[in-house]
Design a binder for these strands. Structure first.
Lengths: 196, 196
DNA sequence: CCGTTTATCATGCAGTCGCATGGTATTAAC
DNA sequence: GTTAATACCATGCGACTGCATGATAAACGG
């Protein structure tokens, strides 16, 4: 075996270049040449790590998912159930540069998943964990008496996740401000607590 | 002065071809040649009606918006406020072939609007009307005693719209069934009425 | 030291892209 | 009948696409 090189690190490096290209110019502008230039390597080098463009995009989505998951998981270890739920929800919204970046890239993948079965499968795979986490926090809050017991935790979790996803585009295109989005989330959490 | 031809009808015809191409193969596959073939006309004819591809996409989005608006408006004239709200919400979800078609196309435009300012402006323009309609129905329901008076109609309207938008992708990729989506909407409407 | 494997590169290829050009046909105004 | 404007088409152009190919360099196992 030849030159010592971390295969996984290279693929991650390329995946991040894909993200930056999507953020800057949109999914349509993702080409092997563009990504290679963004990654600071030759086109042949990129080809060396992926059998096809579709495989590259698939791994780029996987890498985005783990990035977001890691950030959510990192914040999972303090506060009350409702506090955790709040932070986890806000992680999905484009509230600062980092989350805005991920939201833009994520929305591009979301749209492509409609016509790309492999991307759809990957997204489907991750959904139960997120929604399940939300539902778990709601149930914990109910057990702690912070949320009305007769609310349906699963239905509320489904709603909260879809709600957050649905807020992404309006915030990205400037229809809602960051403050609007946060207060919309806080209103719903306040409602769960029973005080409007 | 020359051949008698309905300019607007032609542009609408092309816009619908754009929609079909997006539905079948995704936004990436939208090219002048592909659209021309789908519309059953030559590429030169398509070029005759649009100065550029971007202008074609912009009108295609406009046409989609009016299509959806018309369908929502057509159903606006019967039933209670909460009933209207329900139907208007369900119009946004991919519950049958027609709405599925529009949801797929709409999501593609939604994603592109993040990197295309003109599309974003058009989408922004329409948002207040939809959300305002929802808020109006909630307020009417409150006045009729069908919805708890101390709920914030505006915040609930914002949530319901984003919620519906956020359900689109999960339904399209098969994570939720049509029945799941309807019952999620019905749960939220039941909650507005005060009974869980 | 040599052969094999890996990493990287430059280039070529057939196909597609948006768009411009030049042409023809049709029709209405004069 | 002539002119001008519109509708439409075929073609060409340069740029770009994903991917395949062949070459070069590096590094370890034998």
């Amino acid at each position: 075996m030849p030159k010592i090189v971390d295969h996984e690190a290279r693929r991650r490096h390329i995946a991040e270049a894909v993200h930056r290209v999507i953020d800057a110019k949109g999914m349509d502008s993702v080409s092997l040449r563009e990504v290679a230039a963004e990654a600071g390597m030759s086109m042949g080098a990129v080809q060396h790590y992926f059998a096809s463009k579709d495989e590259m995009l698939l791994l780029a989505l996987g890498h985005l998912n783990t990035r977001i998951s890691l950030r959510v998981a990192a914040v999972t270890h303090d506060g009350t159930p409702l506090g955790l739920l709040r932070v986890a929800l806000l992680e999905l919204l484009p509230l600062d540069d980092e989350r805005r970046f991920e939201a833009r890239v994520g929305l591009a993948f979301l749209a492509r998943s409609v016509v790309a079965g492999d991307l759809a499968a990957l997204l489907r795979e991750g959904l139960p964990y997120v929604v399940g986490f939300y539902a778990g926090q709601i149930r914990a809050a109910q057990a702690a008496g912070q949320v009305e017991g007769d609310l349906d935790a699963d239905q509320e979790a489904v709603m909260l996740f879809a709600f957050a996803q649905g807020m992404v585009n309006p915030v990205l295109i400037g229809h809602y401000t960051v403050e609007d989005a946060v207060s919309a989330v806080d209103y719903q959490l306040r409602r769960l607590r029973g005080g409007y």
